[in-house]
Amino acid sequence: MNGAGRGLSLLAGGVYALILAPVVVVVALAFSADNFIVFPPSGFSLRWFRALAGNAPLLAALGVSVQVACAVTLLSLVIGVPAALALAKGRFRFREALTGFFLAPLLLPTLITGLALLLFFTRLRLTATLPGLALGHMTVTVPFVIRMMTTAFATLPHDIEAAAATLGAAPWRVLRRVTLPLALPGVIACACLSFLLSFDETVISLFLSGPRAATLPVEMVHYVEGRTDPLIAALSVVLIIFTLIVVVAVERLVGVARAVSK
């Protein structure tokens, strides 16, 4: 037994049960044999998974979501990691102000960001396009990457980069041989979380989607507006499994990278 008493453990268990209960309902519905959402289901089958495999609009939306998430992940790292490096290591004026500025979008409700982006992108003809969606998602992921990586860079072991420099490594060699390898767990975590944030992003996507460019969450919202069958539950189960795989993979990768770097 650890320090937490029985009462605390019970409380934690209760909270988890509350959070996970809806998931249990969704999983049960996904295997329903009924035509409509009825709980508990009258029988079980895999018919809604088969229906999902044949639903072209949802599969197309899945393709859009994966493309957007991949682009968002790559671009967020390309922009966020160097920015974090500059903010954590650089010595220049307005560094504090810039740090605050880059983190500000995280504090803004995505509803407002979405509306602002819609108004802004309409003039640029970026609404309902993949680049538009990717840029929209990056208003969430880039600040996130900057924040996480600034911390990762700032908490590197003391003097370790100075040690590399005194041993004859030029600044870019220090970056390549010491700074980046030690920050790798953070980079991997940022990549996976950026992907999931983008894949899951709904509010901004609702503003920026159109008939030719709708992400999976948007298409799912539209589907449940018109239909009440368990197809969406089946899709949810697929997404849950996919997310779990990513999270476990991150845990493994980052865990391994941590072990290697300590």
Partner: peptide, 12 residues
Amino acid sequence: GYVFQSYALFPH
């Protein structure tokens, strides 16, 4: 040659 107080060895 600089020997740091924390040694600053490369952990990786």
